[in-house]
């Protein structure tokens, strides 16, 4: 696997981590009602959205530059 392939795998795993972290924060917030966790959940979902956007941008850029065939 090339660096660009590994990078796409890495960004995918990282996006999943951010999503699951967000869900975990929401679950703790519902159980304990701690406001810090709600902020954490919002931050995590925003990070997941950012990573997903970056992943798509990166894939398109690599295609455009013909570094991914």
């Amino acid at each position: 696997m090339s660096l660009k392939g590994f990078h796409i795998v890495f960004i995918t795993v990282t996006t999943l981590l951010a999503l699951s972290l967000g869900v975990w924060c929401l679950a703790v917030n519902r159980g304990a009602g701690a406001p810090g966790y709600l902020t954490g959940a919002i931050f995590c979902f925003a990070a997941a959205a950012g990573l997903l956007t970056y992943g798509v941008w990166f894939y398109r850029k690599m295609k455009r530059l013909r570094l991914i065939t």
Binding site: L3, H7, F10, L17, S20
Partner: peptide
């Protein structure tokens, strides 16, 4: 860079 990605991936498991 491949090595660096692996090291970062390990951290992605360490953190949670």
């Amino acid at each position: 860079g491949l090595f660096w990605h692996f090291v970062d991936l390990v951290w992605i498991f360490v953190f949670p």
